[in-house]
Design a protein around this nucleic acid. Sequence first.
DNA 1: GGGTACACTTGTCCTATGACAAGAAATCAG
DNA 2: CTGATTTCTTGTCATAGGACAAGTGTACCC
Lengths: 192, 192
Amino acid sequence: MNRDPLVEVYRHPLLQASDLDQLISVHRPISFEKGDFILKEGALSNAYYILVTGLVRSFVFDFDQNDITTNFISKNELILEASSLFQGIPSQENFQALTPCHCLKIDFEDFQRLFHSIKGFREWGRAWMAESLFQLKKRSLSMITDSATDRYLNLLSQQSDILKNAPLKDVASYLGITDSSLSRIRKETARN
Amino acid sequence: MNRDPLVEVYRHPLLQASDLDQLISVHRPISFEKGDFILKEGALSNAYYILVTGLVRSFVFDFDQNDITTNFISKNELILEASSLFQGIPSQENFQALTPCHCLKIDFEDFQRLFHSIKGFREWGRAWMAESLFQLKKRSLSMITDSATDRYLNLLSQQSDILKNAPLKDVASYLGITDSSLSRIRKETARN
DNA sequence: GGGTACACTTGTCCTATGACAAGAAATCAG
DNA sequence: CTGATTTCTTGTCATAGGACAAGTGTACCC
């Protein structure tokens, strides 16, 4: 098993090499086909995944059953539903592979044992959640302060892999606009 | 010192009575006047607070120096900037008392010691962050799927204390609209 | 108590984006 | 290869909410 993605993901000043070895030893490779569900709404999450290659989308259905993309997960990011995994409640979100995906899976039981026994791992985990909160706050703020065009251009400059691999309608709902509007924005911004 | 708010906030199945006693012993009362800053943008956070009475607003300045309310904190909620406290980076947000506030403060040093020594406290902390993420996701989704009027009515029905104590312009930026629009929405929805 | 700032309302006009529908292009299954 | 399905584009029209400016409270302050 290639250790590189794990070394990358678990990089933290308080995580020692020996801790990392323990962590790595409880991860198992698993693959998903395009379209496969990694976690379904209503299910209990009992593991999380490190995405090694591929692209994953998380989404929910709104009141009118419209499918709304809540996030995209790229290479070296975690596929993890915190409220389900840590609070033991059914997942509100769906996670689906947009491309073929190679992942490394860690069961909650193993995670839990190492979380409580390795101080540096707890620090890493807390920092990961703080970072997730931070990113989500940035996104919320952007929904308030930036125009749809600006949000699209930011996504284009910072995560262009998403635009290459996700269907336009998924990107549109992620940006909070309709697919028609995104199509027009794309036409406008391409003209220069 | 009244223990009730702490008992309320630290309620968790894995937190024993003796753990709670330890926790309570490291909290100290502190008060703020209306308008006081509890944490300022650019500062390093080295503590968090439990709000016992009062109302607090967190906000940032956007690119054009507009003041945008990112959250309201009510009774029995935490005043805590996770990225600053846990990742040691300067706070991006300001926290300001909208009314006179009574709080209980816990220093990071004490928090850290208890976090690493009390298993149930770690579980509580992780659950708290998972819940924060969940609430923020709900809010983001609402910005995408609900109209401004719906967001206002939801706030009215679920957190009417905010509308009683916060100036309209702060509520407006929290809802992602201008104060003029909120004023009109309020006029419309009052007529029934 | 009169001034200065702040909070809120209201008017007019404008623009970004949505709703809906139709067509074109790409992808997929047999 | 062919038809079916999905993806993307484009048109027309409607509307929620923004920009800006003026007016009306309301509160604090010396």
